[in-house]
Write a protein that binds this DNA or RNA. Structure first.
Lengths: 202, 202
DNA sequence: CCGTGAATGTACTGTGCAGTACAAACGTGT
DNA sequence: ACACGTTTGTACTGCACAGTACATTCACGG
């Protein structure tokens, strides 16, 4: 961001651009999104894009930071209250259900990983740190589950958290390739089933 | 492929182009690879690219088919002989160890998923079918493990196979974001640990 | 009501890359 | 040795998009 906006109008424009870019990057990828598309969706001209961001690389960096914040904010209410095995299953359910049969299946964070070239080290670091925080919050929830003795015996909350996050990202990938959201549900259920103490109905 | 090569020389050229394109697509992605780069690496000119392939989309389709075949061929010896829990752990170990600390961490198949636009339906289908075969071979191996009673009680071989593949793809993604191959190893070990019967040393 | 800095829109430029045309070299059968 | 189809290299064209320059409009303080 070259010039900080000083007026309310300017800040609104920056927010609109960020929103539009988040949307487009998540839906069709970074390289497939042109600055004209961002301009059209946010109803701004080229002028602002180069006034508030230093060109496309700058916009990408800003969007990644924003997208990380968004995802974590969206996850927080669910992750923060995980305390039982049922809550974990609920989290899986929500994660799987967010993708309809029609819209493209991509994680707004995961889909960005492969589009960063070797030279955007900082952006990649922000992304990696976002995944780290995500995993940490999940691990905190799983530790509470462990307190209730609803974790499978011998399962390490940190390892399970990393595994759940990975299986989610991988599940999104496979489901995206097959255009079939149920593949995501299947793998999430599979790992959840292995990691949580089976609670027979007695 | 517009024109099939009829001579040995022509076939050799096609093979060289396919090799070079596989390499470049896997390393830097489809959109980041120019036809000139493919030409340079395979020591061919533009002429051949448009003689044997119908332009870039055609090349992409051919490369995907080739890449699927390659990965499955490479996996076959290992997957075909899985019979015990130790074999599964060995598979995880090999999968994790293939990435050095320096080279970019990307699955040659997984990294392609996000680069296909909505319009390359056939290419995506080939990719999805490749994942399907991969999972099927893994599942066959896990069924043999089940025969030995070395699968965790109640674990379904098919579900575990899907989960292992997903956690591999997701682990590659996370490890790639963090530039840290150990993240892949961690999540593979975590899922393998949950899915395989714990064999205490007694 | 005017002046100044912020914000906005547009028209222009350069470049990198996909796609095309075509001429030269190769090689195989007769 | 010749002829013809195959293979190869290169030079050209057009376009899409990032980046730039600049003229115009807005809004707030004096």
């Amino acid at each position: 961001m070259r010039t900080e906006p000083t007026t309310a109008k300017g800040r609104a424009t920056v927010a609109r651009v960020l929103d539009a870019a988040c949307e487009l990057f998540a839906r069709q990828g970074i390289r497939a999104t042109t600055l004209d598309q961002v301009g059209a969706l946010s109803r701004t001209g080229r002028g602002q894009l180069y006034l508030y961001f230093t060109g496309k690389p700058g916009l990408v960096a800003a969007v990644i930071a924003q997208q990380v914040q968004r995802v974590l904010d969206a996850q927080q209410p669910l992750l923060g209250t995980i305390a039982t095995a049922a809550d974990v299953r609920e989290w899986c359910d929500v994660a799987a259900r967010q993708y309809g049969v029609d819209d493209p299946i991509r994680c707004p964070l995961g889909s960005l990983v492969h589009e960063l070239t070797g030279q955007d080290g900082p952006a990649r670091a922000v992304l990696a740190e976002g995944f780290g925080r995500w995993r940490a919050e999940l691990a905190a929830g799983l530790r509470r589950v462990e307190q209730c003795d609803e974790l499978a015996p011998g399962a390490d909350p940190d390892a399970v958290a990393a595994a759940l996050l990975a299986v989610y990202e991988g599940g999104v990938l496979l489901a995206g390739a097959a255009h079939d959201p149920t593949q995501l549900r299947m793998v999430l259920d599979a790992v959840a089933g292995l990691a949580l103490a089976s609670v027979p109905a007695y």
